[in-house]
Nucleic acid binder design. Sequence first.
DNA 1: ATAATCCCTCTAGTAGCTATAGGTTCAAGG
DNA 2: CCTTGAACCTATAGCTACTAGAGGGATTAT
Lengths: 136, 136
Amino acid sequence: MFSIGELSKRTGVKIPTIRYYEHIGLMDAPERSEGNQRRYTKQGLKCLSFIRHSRELGFSLDDIKGLLELNQQPGSPCKNAHLIAIRHLTEVRVRLTKLRRLERELKRISACRADSIESCAVIETLADHSLCETDH
Amino acid sequence: MFSIGELSKRTGVKIPTIRYYEHIGLMDAPERSEGNQRRYTKQGLKCLSFIRHSRELGFSLDDIKGLLELNQQPGSPCKNAHLIAIRHLTEVRVRLTKLRRLERELKRISACRADSIESCAVIETLADHSLCETDH
DNA sequence: ATAATCCCTCTAGTAGCTATAGGTTCAAGG
DNA sequence: CCTTGAACCTATAGCTACTAGAGGGATTAT
């Protein structure tokens, strides 16, 4: 049996965040001590680790809810899990592409060597889209 | 003189968002018509375009506030604008690195060909960090 | 017994919007 | 001039995923 503080230490998830996950129904409410404090079992630890790890991989809480449910139906096909993962992968790739373009643009405008605002490439570029190298 | 709707069309920024920018002090409150409707000048259009473009490049509203202020002090050195841009570039690079790792990991786990939850790599990996290829 | 540390609930705040409700104004057509 | 429909107004609440604080009770070690 772990207290919420122990669970927090073991998973690296902050205490208010754990309570928040319970509040929104992502984690089951655990048993309580006589004095009304949360007492978690290994099950709770596993669940929270799963959530934490999924968050690190950037899954939304909604996606995680879906994955947790799939996980709790033994024998179910894992096609849905794949759908969620692949959709997420697609999103990540879109973001990657955007960020790469962004990096190029920022690198370019940061390289300006003017010393007053009137001729600063940073400001000029932000004010006028047509000075950009690429669309966005 | 533009109405808020026209401004919205010209910049691609939604109407409630424009009002929101005014509300938080990012844009100056424009003059009003007799019937209390907002009437913008070219100045307002320029300002909103600047904001929009900066947002597309991922600057926070706080950063944009700073950049706009710099822009309004002619003759000021543009060092600060560069600081903001370079700090942002650094953040973008950090995010890029993380996203690249993420993409590799997602690609790997999505490639699983099992057909039931028990042996699905997506679920297994999420449940057990030690199965990951890299740290995160 | 007491002090230190932990835990409880509840509310409000963060970023950057978006949506809704309920009402007013504008511009064009008859 | 009058009507109608689109566009506008304010104010409030909601979204994601938390985080921080207030004001109080529980647990644990000495």
